[in-house]
Write a protein that binds this DNA or RNA. Structure first.
Length: 719
DNA sequence: CGTGCGTTTCTCTAGACAGCATGTC
DNA sequence: CTAGAGAAACGCACG
């Protein structure tokens, strides 16, 4: 079936054909009529077999008939990807917006768009804020809907879909999923047609490797003669490079990724050409300089890249990650060794995918097998459409005896069915409050009806649910999130704020406790940082064997707003990681170098930024809760702390960084040059500012322009 | 006494969403 | 805690 035979607007067809689409893949051909009929649809097919095109066509069709569409994705990066893919259609006057937590775009105008791309959390947040234009939606697309199975984020997606169904029963729902065993259940729950297929645009050969040969499921095998001086993974990589391909290796820890990338880099030297080496050397220098601060992790990445190999995990800074991804796409890097970061999400295919580790450490459990769904997603990265003649996925067995089991389970067997995780206490707490706070459920009957229409309820015995719900509503009532009068629920201001701030009710309670403590007015930055680090929304650093220094710090600091537990108790086991996390944040606002923070806490630059970003969000929430409770004296210190976290600077730079173009680096440069207040800048001649390193003529002029129009500057901060 | 290298012991474990209002090197 | 890779520490032989 051809694109041009679809019952679509001619202009849409032209743009699609202009982007190189002509013929539909078989699963697309099957799904497209259903998608364009306006009926609900579940599509369960492998990654990279053209799922999104089905959704795009349905969306464009509906929009040209005068509707709005919401496209829900699991990652911010995917939101951008979809945005770029849909961009050509803006020619038709179609407006597209992105709504993710980090994206810099005015939200008030979001409703003006025809297509809004967002993460599932953002979609949930829009519902919580009772965003009016949601009722204009004619299509809701849920990408990677199998993530309903994820314990931490799945419930959000599930609840969001449930609420959209209720809010707008006429709207079409299109759910796109990886291949899963019980896609039928999902379709039945959504009242949708089901299209299921294993078809892939590139042939995928799957095999198991035991150290001597790779045995493929089609009974072919590659013998690998043991060769001294080269380990077997490197050999598998080298072999594919020799044939003109690239390799992607998945391992289960960051440390392994670093070490293996180094090893492979050394081993593939013979198959890298002189020209490629030169290119890699340039790239390596680039890698060193992309992040604003140098770290030893960046150094070791650059060393690997020099050999045409790289590692990839969430400890890398975002720029470093971007450079690796792009260079791999361009073929400048021949092999990437990655943790599961690259399994889902960004599309980064390679001719040969090697999955070295099938087990992964899990807290409380020990080593647990990685779900087959995840392994399949890794294997699915094998084979670049139009570029590779085929893709090869190789799973590595630890012993020869393991070989047959791996073949049966991972290569020939089904992937697991997905199960709703909405039944967890924390998920219900979070989402029930939201449902009540936004006026979606006003009494127990509506609450039962709401839960009754979830996938969780679809998969669970009904009698089980009610007692569970009572426990949650009791919690919400007891803690003043909601009240119940004449059998009607009403949210309190505290409840509404908690829901809209998008924090866990338990976090809100911790914050409230800290703010109302009599010590709050004497709180230091570290006191407040410790409060947010003690909420369940913060990601905690774990304690390591060499962390006794944390205990010493604990003795030095006593200004905690939350009660310090006795040593050697279970509470202490939570308190210490929270304290360690708070110390990291304190180092950050004290302008400690990233390299030092990295070493001291045993994390990467990417982790620093992740923690800081979380802290920003939670500090904002803390300030809002303080405002709600009328604790005015905390507003200034919390606002200042917020600015310091955002900029990573000491309090003394606060007056300077209010200026445009002045962040922590230039602020520090000005300060060290003796300019400590706006007033001193006002008096200084422009030329003397221009002589300061990192400032220069242009910036100096900007500064002078700003300080001479002092009336336009907010003067709320201390100077 | 320093160096190199095989062996034993010790340590530590993936990822990433959310508020709100504007501007870093 | 049901494991195992990688790094550090150790120990031994050699010059």
């Amino acid at each position: 079936m051809l694109i041009r035979d679809l019952p679509l607007d001619q202009r849409v067809i032209e743009i699609l054909e202009g982007s190189g689409f002509r013929e539909l893949y078989p699963p697309q051909a099957e799904a497209m009529p259903l998608a364009l009929s306006g009926q609900n649809l579940v599509v369960s097919i492998p990654t990279a077999s053209g799922k999104s095109l089905i959704a795009y066509c349905a969306i464009l069709d509906q929009i040209l008939k005068g509707g709005k569409a919401l496209y829900i994705v699991p990652l911010r990066a995917l939101a951008r990807e979809k945005f770029d893919e849909l961009a050509p259609f803006r020619r038709l006057g179609i407006k597209i917006g992105i709504a993710t937590g980090d994206f810099d775009r005015k939200e008030s105008h979001l409703g003006r768009n025809h297509i809004i791309i967002c993460t599932s959390e953002k979609a949930d947040s829009l519902l919580r804020h009772r965003t009016t234009w949601l009722s204009e939606l004619k299509v809701v697309v849920a990408d990677e809907v199998h993530l309903i199975n994820d314990p931490s984020r799945g419930p959000t997606l599930e609840v969001t879909l449930t609420r959209f169904k209720a809010l707008n029963p006429e709207a079409q729902i299109i759910a796109l999923s990886a291949t899963i065993k019980n896609a039928g259940e999902l379709a039945e729950w959504l009242d949708a047609n089901l299209v299921q297929s294993e078809w892939r645009p590139v042939e995928l050969r799957k095999g198991v490797f035991d150290g001597s040969t790779v045995d493929f499921t089609d009974n072919k095998s590659i013998p690998l003669p043991q060769r001294p001086g080269i380990d077997s993974i490197s050999f598998l990589v080298e072999d594919t490079i020799k044939q003109g391909g690239q390799a992607l290796v998945f391992v289960n820890t960051r440390r392994s990724a670093n070490a293996l990338a180094k090893k492979v880099g050394g081993a593939i030297r013979p198959v890298i050409s002189e020209k490629e080496r030169e290119e890699a050397a340039n790239l390596s220098n680039h890698v060193l300089n992309v992040e604003r601060e140098k770290t030893s992790l960046g150094k070791s990445l650059a060393d690997c890249v020099r050999e045409g190999c790289a590692f990839h995990h969430a400890g890398l800074g975002s720029e470093q990650r971007r450079v690796v991804e792009q260079a791999f796409r361009e073929g400048k890097i021949k092999c990437v060794v990655a943790t599961p970061t690259l399994a889902a999400g960004m599309n980064l295919p390679a001719r040969r995918v090697i999955v070295r580790d099938l087990w992964r450490y899990a807290a409380l459990i020990g080593m647990a097998p990685i779900p087959r769904l995840e392994i399949h997603q890794m294997m699915g990265r094998a084979g670049r459409p139009h570029l590779d003649p085929y893709g090869e996925a190789v799973l590595v067995a630890r012993h020869p005896e393991e070989k047959e089991r791996i073949r049966e389970e991972y290569l020939l067997g089904d992937v697991e069915p997905i199960h709703s995780k909405l039944g967890s206490e924390s998920a219900l707490r979070f989402h029930l409050l939201a449902a009540i706070a936004s006026g979606f459920t006003r009494n127990r009957q509506e609450l039962n009806h709401f839960i009754g229409s979830t996938f969780y309820s679809y998969q669970t015995e009904a009698y089980w649910l009610e007692s569970q719900l009572d426990g949650i509503t009791d919690f919400l009532l007891d803690n003043d999130f909601i009240v119940e009068n004449e059998e009607q629920f009403k949210p309190t201001l505290f409840g509404v704020k908690t829901s809209e701030l998008y924090i866990d009710p338990l976090s809100a309670l911790k914050m409230k406790e800290a703010i109302l403590s009599e010590k709050a007015s004497r709180g230091e930055p570290l006191s407040f940082l410790h409060v947010i680090a003690s909420t369940p929304d913060m990601r905690l650093l774990s304690l390591r064997r060499t962390d006794e220094w944390i205990l010493e710090k604990l003795d030095e600091f006593s200004n905690f707003l939350l009660e310090k537990p006795e040593p050697e108790t279970a509470e202490m086991d939570l308190f210490l990681p929270a304290f360690k996390t708070a110390l990291l944040l304190e180092d950050w606002i004290n302008e400690e170098s990233e390299e030092n923070i990295t070493k001291r806490y045993g994390i990467g630059p990417g982790d620093i930024h992740a923690e800081v970003e979380l802290a920003q969000w939670l500090l904002y929430a803390l300030r809002e809760i303080a405002r709600l409770l009328y604790i005015g004296e905390l507003m200034l210190p919390l606002t200042n702390l917020n600015i310091r976290i955002r900029n990573g600077c000491k309090a003394e730079l606060l007056p300077l960084i209010q200026l445009e173009q002045i962040g922590r680096v230039r602020g520090r440069a000005l300060y060290n040059a003796g300019f400590r207040t706006l007033n001193s800048l006002r008096k200084a001649p422009e030329e003397s500012l221009a002589r300061i390193p990192t400032i220069g003529k242009e910036i100096a002029r900007t500064i002078k322009r700003q300080v001479t129009r002092v009336d336009h500057i907010q003067t709320g901060l201390k100077e």
